[in-house]
Computed example of a mutant assay.
Amino acid sequence: MHLARYDTLEPFITADGSTIREWAGPGYSPARHQSLAEATLPPGTATIAHYHPRAEELYLFTAGRGRLRVGDDERDVQPGDCVVIPPGTVHKLWNSGDADLVLVCACSPAYSHEDTILVEGDQPPAD
């Protein structure tokens, strides 16, 4: 059995600029096809607009308040909201509150820097 405890997880910065603590993923757990992590965005910050050619993401917001753009749709997000981000869809997250914006993120296939394409000027990828 693989058991990950939050207080032992080493945080790292993803390609989009968020701070991640990964509970499960290839290379350090038995998970081979997905990853599960907690992401934190401090107040007044945002991720870099990006997309993942291969990975589908699920965001489950657990603390704070923010705004999320997925494709052409932009909405406020708060604890208890869950968003599906299809592969190849540009997305960007802002913390619009006065506390950390925290979310659990599941990726399939697992998150990798190589599957993260940063997008200049928040524009969708060219065809």
Rank of each mutant, 00 (worst) to 15 (best):
M1A: 13
R5V: 13
D7K: 04
T8E: 14
T8I: 05
L9F: 00
E10A: 15
I13S: 05
T14Y: 03
D16P: 00
S18I: 01
S18D: 07
S18T: 01
T19P: 07
I20D: 03
E22P: 00
W23Y: 15
W23F: 15
P26E: 03
G27R: 05
S29P: 07
P30Q: 13
R32T: 12
H33Y: 12
H33L: 15
Q34H: 10
A39P: 00
L41R: 06
L41S: 04
L41W: 04
P42S: 12
P42T: 09
A46P: 00
T47N: 09
T47S: 15
I48A: 14
A49C: 13
P53C: 05
R54M: 09
A55F: 06
E56P: 00
L60M: 05
A63M: 09
G64R: 13
G66W: 12
R67W: 04
R67D: 05
R67T: 05
D73E: 09
Q78A: 15
Q78R: 13
P79W: 15
G80Y: 09
D81K: 12
C82H: 06
V83H: 04
V83M: 10
I85S: 07
G88S: 11
V90Y: 02
K92W: 05
W94D: 00
W94T: 00
D98W: 03
D100R: 08
L101F: 02
L103I: 02
V104K: 07
V104A: 15
A106Y: 03
P109M: 03
H113I: 01
E114P: 10
D115I: 02
D115A: 09
L118M: 08
D122K: 13
Q123H: 14
